[in-house]
């Protein structure tokens, strides 16, 4: 996987749906078993002990996935990986590939994009843009 694979479109996907490394691991866990419905606590436990996710973070990540068209949430609150389109599925495949082949680059991108909001606030006060 080359640096060019981190396209603007893929970065936008990361910025909106995968706001932390924990969220990436959660999404990949769901995507590995697309036919399975997960109970949210069970899903969080399945990542332990390497990754510990609080209830609040878990709820936030799942809401981001749902808003991003990546999962379906049933009436019983269980979750299933269900990308809304081929593009969504492709982005998740790219995420899995990046996680496997370029984890350091992926983590740096995730946190750099997260800091972008604060940077944009600072940049707003630049009278002349470069």
């Amino acid at each position: 996987m080359e640096d060019s694979a981190f396209s603007d479109e893929f970065c936008r996907f990361i910025q909106t749906c995968v706001t932390s490394v924990d969220a990436a691991e959660l999404l990949l866990k769901l995507a590995r078993q697309p036919e399975r419905w997960f109970e949210p606590p069970e899903l969080a436990r399945s990542l332990a002990p390497a990754t510990t996710i609080s209830e609040a973070d878990l709820a936030r990540y799942l809401a981001q996935f749902q808003a991003g068209g990546l999962v379906a949430i049933g009436p019983d609150k269980r979750i299933q990986y269900r990308p809304a389109s081929g593009t969504h599925a492709k982005h998740v495949e790219m995420l899995a590939q990046a996680y496997k082949e370029r984890p350091v680059t992926l983590f740096r991108v995730i946190y750099a994009l997260r800091d972008l909001k604060i940077q944009s606030f600072a940049d707003a006060f630049k009278l002349i843009r470069k």
Binding site: K117, S120, F121, D123, A124, F125, L127
Partner: peptide, 15 residues
């Protein structure tokens, strides 16, 4: 004005 200009350019709701 600067913040509205930046919001128009980036659509970031923080702005």
């Amino acid at each position: 004005l600067l913040l509205f200009r930046a919001y128009a350019a980036t659509a970031m709701r923080l702005l």
